[in-house]
Amino acid sequence: MSAAKRLVVCGGNGFLGSRICRYAVGRGWDVTSISRSGEPKWENVTSSATPPPWAHKVSWERADIFQPEAWAPLIKGADAVVHSMGILLEADYKGVISGRESPIAGLRKAFSPAAGRAAPPNPLRRAPGDELRPPESPAQLTYEMMNRDSAVLLAREAARERVGAFLYVSAAGGAPVLPERYILTKREAESILTSEFPQMRSVFLRAPFMYDSSRGLTMPLAAATGAGALFNRATGGIFGSILGSGGVKPLKANDVAEAAVEALSDETVRGPVEVPQIEELANKGWRKSML
């Protein structure tokens, strides 16, 4: 009997990351999650505050992505690594939700020019012992740092450990309400991973808007996004560049997670994976689970 596949998920306590952990556990994989807070606050990612049964089979580790000395040993011996991290807005969005910051102030930060921000260190040119921790101020957590550089940093360590597959949760597109740099940094990450780590099978899961009934707010947003996708299709896609992800069919978070696990298990899958292929992979994974 072959040994269980070993998977490390950075951002495994998030909305999508936790579901990737779930489906990997369902296949009998040995799963480790790495995040700053460790185990999820389950009421934030599921409909219950109680950990689901599969959660006890995941090793929930705490580490800062910008301090690889803390988490690099956890990657040793991994068959695959997932980067499921990033930010939608360059603002303290948790502060906005909790009332510590007004939504107007948060949007102002998000759309403020990038020129005034300090340039983040290049993770590929980082010398041993150099500090790469993001500034303590949430306002300085940039798209470049979270959507691009953290993925490059993780991929560098994975390549050093000769990890076979690396899955980066990208995006189907931007959105009219988001700065253009959101999707630009996603695409830059894809390009860097392809060129700098050719020996590693990189998969770029270009996920659309994801929804789940456990997050009530996502349901009406998914309906609106679905209407945008129908409109985009009816008009021949001429508004696709304007609508971004708002013109792409939304998917259930569980389907995207199952597709991610199936993509990692299928050696033929590499490079960008668009929504139609995500659906195909999810269906393929579902059929396997029924056998």
Rank of each mutant, 00 (worst) to 15 (best):
S112F: 01
A127E: 10
P134S: 07
A139E: 15
A171N: 05
A151V: 09
R148H: 08
P123N: 02
S170V: 01
R148Q: 08
T185F: 01
Y182S: 07
A118G: 11
A127P: 10
F166N: 10
R125N: 12
P179F: 06
F111D: 05
L124R: 11
G173C: 03
P123W: 00
R100N: 09
E101R: 15
A151E: 04
A105Y: 03
Q140F: 10
R100A: 09
Q140T: 15
I104E: 15
A127R: 11
T142D: 14
A172I: 11
A151N: 07
R117E: 15
G174V: 10
L178S: 00
P135S: 13
R181T: 11
R133Q: 13
E157Y: 06
P179D: 10
A172N: 01
F166R: 03
L178P: 05
L167K: 01
A105G: 03
E180G: 08
R162T: 14
A105E: 07
L107D: 00
A171E: 09
R117I: 14
I104K: 06
L124G: 08
L132E: 06
G174H: 09
T142Q: 07
A159V: 06
V163M: 02
E157M: 04
L153Y: 02
P176W: 05
F111I: 06
G106W: 01
A155W: 09
E144H: 06
Q140C: 11
G99I: 05
V152W: 01
A155C: 12
A119I: 14
R148N: 10
A105L: 05
V169Q: 00
R126K: 12
P176C: 07
P121N: 01
S150G: 07
E101N: 10
S112C: 09
G164S: 03
S112D: 08
L153C: 00
P179I: 03
R148W: 03
S150M: 06
P113R: 04
E157K: 02
A172K: 03
N122Q: 04
A115C: 11
L124H: 10
L124W: 09
R125T: 15
P179A: 12
R100V: 10
L107G: 02
V177E: 05
L154P: 14
P179Q: 15
A155V: 05
G164T: 02
L178T: 00
R117M: 10
I104A: 14
L154I: 15
N147M: 12
P123D: 00
R108V: 03
Y168D: 00
V163T: 14
I183Q: 05
P135Q: 13
R108A: 02
D130N: 09
S137Q: 11
P135I: 13
G164K: 10
L153T: 08
R133M: 09
P103R: 08
L141M: 12
L154E: 03
M146H: 02
V177C: 07
T142G: 11
Y168W: 03
L132K: 07
A115P: 04
A105H: 10
G164N: 04
V152Q: 04
Y168I: 14
G164D: 06
G106L: 01
E157V: 07
G129D: 00
A127I: 06
Y168E: 08
L107K: 00
V177G: 02
R160G: 09
E131V: 13
L141K: 08
L153K: 04
A171S: 15
L167H: 01
E180W: 11
A171R: 09
R108K: 08
V163P: 04
Q140S: 15
E144V: 02
E180C: 06
A139M: 12
R117G: 12
R160S: 13
